[in-house]
Computed example of a mutant assay.
Amino acid sequence: MTDKLSRIVLDRLRAINWTDDSGAFNHPHSRALLMREYLRRAALWAKAYDAEPSWPFFDIAGHIDAEITISAHIADELEELLEELAPASLRTTCRGAVRWAALREARNDLPTELPDPYEPLLAMYERGGGYYIEEYLDLNGVMIPLRDVESNASAPAVLTLAPATLDALDAEGEMTYYARISDGYPRHSPRGIVRRRVDDDRTYDEAFTRNLRWEPTEYLRLYDLGHNDIDHVRITEIEAAAFIEALAKKLVGSP
């Protein structure tokens, strides 16, 4: 067994600016989405290996194979990195992600139907550091409820972790997304999507265009006035992300 994959994860952790609060405040919506996806994936692995009491921030590799280890120099570098990080559960997930990489390299019999548990969490850390646990999960800019294993395991899956798609979800204010639908353009494959963003008591209506960015639109205002025949339906942030990803692939191809 080599330490190639665990080294890659360790290098990603070392590259994170754990004290960059501005990064967290610039990416509140995508960080919340990524944390929810981690909680969902971790719940699936916890259920698969009877590890529900250890959920949500735990060493998944240790529950699958108690004998899994990482090389001494990787372990030493990891502990040096984690020395001043808090809370303790954050340190647990960083160790877990490195050990998960070692497990992937050592075993080829892991369940293929279960998604990589730590990738959403690593992506969240890379977009603004860690979190704090109070009454809610505090992600430095947004707070989300923890809930329980079952509700997280049954939550909708986030189908893309592409940085450009995640960037498109981040903006100041509260956002509501809508899909423009008509004959031949159902909710799962709409004509387009728009969002209403409210920030500091000001409302901004924006459409995601073929320029792969949000641009001002009069669609919602005209619809409310009865001047637009194209209907719309409210959709989730996850559905909006799926449309953005599909449009990007259609216009510029897969990365």
Rank of each mutant, 00 (worst) to 15 (best):
R12H: 05
D50F: 12
P111I: 00
D183E: 10
W214Q: 00
E79G: 03
Y125L: 03
I230E: 11
E77A: 11
L146P: 07
A32R: 02
R180P: 02
R41V: 07
I16F: 03
D199L: 13
N26R: 15
D183Q: 06
A66I: 12
T93K: 05
F25S: 03
Y178D: 05
A42Q: 14
L122N: 03
G226W: 13
C94V: 01
F208N: 07
T19W: 08
A155E: 05
A86S: 15
T217Y: 07
R196T: 01
L121M: 07
I238N: 06
A246L: 06
T236G: 14
A97N: 00
A248Y: 08
S22K: 12
A88K: 14
M143H: 11
R202S: 15
D224G: 10
L169Y: 02
D138R: 08
D167G: 00
P53L: 03
E150P: 10
L166C: 06
A168M: 12
H232C: 07
D224E: 14
L137G: 01
P145T: 03
E218G: 08
N152M: 13
R91H: 04
A101Y: 12
P186I: 05
A164V: 10
A162G: 04
Y132F: 07
A42L: 13
P111M: 01
A248N: 07
L122A: 05
G192D: 03
A15F: 08
L110A: 12
Y178C: 01
L222W: 08
L121G: 00
